[in-house]
Design a protein around this nucleic acid. Structure first.
Length: 116
DNA sequence: TTTATGGCTGTCA
DNA sequence: ATGACAGCCATAA
């Protein structure tokens, strides 16, 4: 088994708690890649299917699912996965980053109603 | 070595 | 709001 240069990226993404999302740029920064947000996207692109990496929690800076140029069928799948975790979309395409963007710490996502 | 290519991002029209 | 452009930088050929 050989380590890929993307392993670091995968490690960071794996730390994203459920119900939260992170942007490519954010992941790149946390992984020490600086502005290489594209490397993150590429890492996810080559990500093997059986991986435990929650790739669906990574979205672009606009809070949308990144269009990958092909057919957008996976975008719908990604959106579905996020909705299952409690992430809400506006207009069915945008995520409320103010509320669901991962701040780098482990913490449950804010709920609309006071849960306490 | 150089070129081409991105699951990006920020700025401007 | 959307669309076009230019930086950015590792990987592949």
């Amino acid at each position: 088994m050989m380590a890929s240069p993307f392993d670091l990226i995968y490690a960071v993404i794996s730390r994203i708690p459920p119900g939260r999302v992170a942007t490519y740029g954010q992941v790149a920064l946390l992984a020490g890649l600086g502005r290489s947000a594209r490397r993150v996207g590429q890492a996810l692109r080559v990500l093997p299917e059986g991986s435990a990496v929650p790739w669906h929690r990574v979205i672009n800076a606009r809070g949308e699912i990144s269009p990958r140029g092909g057919m957008g069928w996976e975008e719908g799948y990604q959106r579905h996965l996020l909705e299952e975790e409690g992430v809400e979309f506006k207009d069915g395409r945008r995520v409320d980053l103010e509320r669901f963007l991962w701040d780098g710490e482990e913490r449950a996502p804010r709920r609309r109603k006071r849960a306490r």
